[in-house]
Design a binder for these strands. Structure first.
Lengths: 161, 161
DNA sequence: TATTGTTATACTCTATAACTATA
DNA sequence: TATAGTTATAGAGTATAACAATA
């Protein structure tokens, strides 16, 4: 009597899965040599993709005030994950970029996050993986078409096998 | 030559979808009459399911120090979302619970979050919804079996249609 | 003068430690 | 004394506003 899943069925399970993953990812946060705050991590995510931006642009990307970003950069620089360089074109701007250690940290964090998911996905039989990928891709595409500019894609490390 | 999706295919799309949803949910955060911080929201989520607990237990549930929780409760009480009552059994304990307004706020927030998802899920044809639900349920169950105690289920409002 | 980045100040969150009051 | 809760005190994130330096 229920040939296809209703919208509310999807909402329920989708919510559960997202919350499960959020809990898992929370747990892979602290396992680092230099514990980084969530805000600092956001800075690193942005800088990874737009290396060399100035402080103002970084603030806009984060939707944060310049002063806040300045302080965040202070601390990231202090732990050696960020480089502040004077801009060669304008002496009142800075060029912000991740240091080598900063990049290494991000790769490491991503790997830990994926490892948590892999542990679970690896349990699924091949047919279930295909079903899941198929459903998720349709959701992703629908989400992208509804909110074209607001997708939070993570391109790094997304090489298909 | 690829009869079924590989594990890395799943990881890629799953990561994308979770990040999309996190971005969406972030946006439904500030649309409230009394803006609540993330920490305060966590308090409310816990209290919703364990009404009447004392401050110590709440702190353990949040993995936060008692003093932090005390301050969080101060502010939640100030905006009228939380009630502090003296325990009838032990005069050194308090009974923490959500006020009526607090509960109403949570319901409202949940509805906003679901509305964001519903907008997208509603776009999917029925067959795609079924595929998605099927795949997600298998993931959820696998996740629950791998991490039995760490599931972040959201039972409220999960009535199936 | 307008812009970039940094401090000054203030508020919230967080934690450890000290304190009060109960058991 | 041991425990529950609340204050000190301190450090980090956030924002607005004031400030320095540059364009």
């Amino acid at each position: 009597m229920r040939p296809h899943a209703g919208v509310d069925d999807v909402l329920q399970v989708l919510t559960q899965v997202v919350e499960q993953i959020e809990v898992m990812w929370e747990r892979s946060k602290d396992v680092s040599p230099a514990p980084i705050s969530v805000s600092q991590l956001r800075v690193m995510f942005v800088l990874e993709k737009s290396s060399g931006t100035n402080l103002r642009a970084l603030g806009e990307a984060l939707d944060a005030a310049p002063s806040s970003v300045s302080r965040l950069c202070d601390r990231l620089q202090a732990v050696g994950f960020l480089d502040r360089a004077l801009s060669p074109t304008s002496r009142r701007e800075v060029e912000l970029s991740l240091s080598e250690r900063g990049r290494a940290y991000l790769l490491d964090l991503r790997e830990r996050r994926r490892e948590h998911l892999r542990e679970i996905v690896g349990e699924l039989p091949p047919a279930a993986r295909s079903t899941l990928v198929s459903g998720l891709r349709k959701f992703r595409d629908a989400a992208t078409s509804v909110h074209p500019l607001e997708d939070g894609h993570d391109e790094a490390g997304s090489q298909s096998a």
